[in-house]
């Protein structure tokens, strides 16, 4: 069974997407061969204060062994650290996720540095979402650019020992970033090309590739099949599909 490092719960209002309860989401993921998922609350993207939604998610996922809640931090807010400490008390916190482009701050900001120092000290992982949609097809009421690669590379320069996971990188971006940063890993939900994984492995070691379905925005099966039918060994599929996540997030 796969471990999904890029799944969300909640409603995305800009497209006709399935609306699922946590139970329905669990059933859906299981049906698609996903045994465990790190999930964040989508509605944290549309409100200045993600805290209530994070708490709601942490509380709700307690009843589900297959979900690891990943709270979203808005570093634009003054109380992000307070929120983070609350989540540590409420759950066995494995990771936090940030959406710098939705929450309007740069990865060069001092608060990002403070966050990374905190996470390093406490053994918590950082997931940076680069984009939620293909920029060419965003609803006109919601236009958000992807996170600049230069800012991602900057994290690698400032914190050369700190490994982080990016979600939503395009294939050319993965190639470009690979030349500038040795500490990022990536999911493959936005990466696309014939024989994709073998192409990516020319630039990245297999421990840096993670499975992410980007459910519910993307068709879950599309991303599971990307791995399932890839012309790579079963051992590699297992490593990318679950081993890397298990190790990185200590699941």
């Amino acid at each position: 069974m796969l471990i999904d490092t890029n799944a969300s719960f909640g409603h995305w209002p800009f497209a006709r997407l399935p609306k699922r309860t946590l139970t329905a989401l669990e059933t859906h993921l299981t049906k698609n061969g996903i045994g465990h998922a790190l999930i964040s609350h989508l509605e944290t993207l549309f409100t200045p204060d993600p805290h209530p939604y994070n708490l709601e998610l942490i509380k709700a996922t307690k009843r589900y062994d297959r979900f690891t809640p990943v709270p979203v931090l808005n570093l634009y807010n003054p109380d992000w650290l307070e929120g983070l400490e609350t989540y540590r008390k409420k759950t066995d916190l494995k990771a936090v996720k940030i959406y710098p482009n939705f929450h309007n701050y740069s990865l060069n900001s001092g608060r990002v540095n403070a966050l990374i120092r905190y996470l390093s000290e406490h053994g918590i992982r950082l997931i940076i979402n680069v984009r939620m949609l293909d920029e060419r097809h965003q609803y006109f009421g919601l236009k958000v650019n992807g996170v600049p690669l230069k800012q991602l590379a900057g994290i690698g320069e400032r914190f050369p020992e700190f490994r982080f996971l990016c979600t939503g990188l395009y294939r050319p971006e993965i190639f470009e970033l690979a030349d500038q940063c040795e500490t990022f890993s990536t999911d493959m939900s936005f990466a696309d090309w014939h024989d994709l994984i073998n192409e990516l492995l020319k630039k990245l070691s297999p421990d840096r590739l993670f499975f992410g379905s980007h459910t519910p925005l993307m068709v879950t099966k599309a991303n599971t099949m990307k791995l399932e039918v890839a012309p790579i060994s079963a051992k590699l599929k297992k490593q990318i599909g679950q081993g890397n996540a298990k190790k990185f997030f200590k699941l």
Binding site: W193, H194, V219, K221, A222, T224, M225, K226
Partner: peptide, 18 residues
């Protein structure tokens, strides 16, 4: 639209549709 796209993903978007 291969090779711009990955075949499994393209099939999955249909087989995984509701």
């Amino acid at each position: 639209d291969i090779p711009i796209r990955e075949l499994g993903q393209c099939i999955g978007r249909v087989t995984g549709a509701d």
